[in-house]
Simulated assay, not measured.
Amino acid sequence: MVKSLTSRQLDVVSLTPIVNLTAEAMHHDFVKVLECVEDVGFEIVAISIDNSTPNRKFVQKILCNGVVQPWVHQPLDNTRKLFIVIDMVHNFKNIYNNILNKKHFACPEFQGKDVKASFDHVEMIWKLERGKPTRMSHKLSDKVLPTPISSGTDKCEIGRWLLPREHH
């Protein structure tokens, strides 16, 4: 996908079916897309990637020669820079999905301390603050929890809302 920095233009350049995505296959397609897009008059100044394994390997091993950097020389024109932008929103989504699926998340050591997260902490905050008029976690609701926690609603009341209209 190509997105312009100066206009609202957004175009899909290539959709390629791939069974096993590798850094080498990505590099091959990357160069073909660069050539195609630059041949029609665009100047590629940045690429955006998420933190998937093939993307990480492609950037680290192939584009950056083993050491990740904020930019590399543009493969088609060594006098220009090609900036590498990490899609942080996608990374946060991956972390969130990971903690939803595994319920526990161990992060790399930070300032000499282990950093761990558990969805139990989120559920504990939800239970402590639910029903209060002001909350620190004002957007936290049972809809964002991995399994809805019972809010104390009568099961018969829930059943009433699921019946067809003629039964009310």
Rank of each mutant, 00 (worst) to 15 (best):
D29I: 11
D29W: 12
D29F: 11
F30V: 07
F30L: 06
F30Q: 05
V31D: 09
K32F: 06
L34Q: 09
C36T: 13
C36I: 06
C36A: 14
E38R: 01
E43W: 06
I44H: 03
I44K: 07
I44T: 14
I44S: 08
V45F: 05
I49H: 01
I49G: 02
D50V: 04
N51V: 07
S52W: 00
S52C: 15
T53L: 15
N55I: 07
R56I: 12
K57P: 07
K57Q: 12
K57Y: 04
F58K: 04
V59G: 02
Q60R: 15
K61M: 10
K61T: 09
K61W: 07
I62L: 11
I62A: 04
C64P: 03
N65R: 11
N65L: 10
G66A: 04
V67Q: 14
V67T: 11
V68L: 08
Q69K: 11
V72C: 10
H73Y: 10
Q74M: 14
Q74R: 13
P75C: 04
L76K: 07
L76P: 03
D77W: 00
D77P: 01
N78R: 12
N78I: 11
N78L: 13
N78C: 03
L82A: 08
L82Q: 05
L82G: 01
F83D: 01
I86T: 08
D87Y: 04
V89R: 05
V89F: 12
V89H: 03
H90A: 02
H90I: 02
F92K: 00
N94Q: 13
Y96L: 12
N98K: 13
N98T: 13
I99G: 02
I99S: 00
L100C: 14
N101I: 01
N101T: 11
N101C: 10
K102Q: 14
K102H: 15
K103F: 08
K103C: 11
H104Y: 08
A106L: 12
C107M: 13
C107W: 09
C107R: 01
P108M: 03
P108F: 08
E109T: 07
E109D: 07
E109Y: 00
E109R: 08
G112R: 02
K113L: 06
D114Y: 00
V115S: 00
K116D: 07
A117C: 14
F119T: 01
F119G: 04
D120I: 11
H121M: 13
H121N: 13
E123Q: 10
E123K: 10
M124A: 15
I125Q: 05
I125C: 08
I125D: 09
W126M: 00
L128A: 15
E129A: 01
K132E: 06
P133H: 02
T134I: 08
S137V: 03
S137T: 15
S137P: 00
S137G: 04
H138P: 08
K139Q: 11
K139P: 08
S141T: 15
D142P: 02
K143C: 10
V144F: 14
V144K: 14
L145W: 03
P146D: 07
T147M: 06
P148K: 15
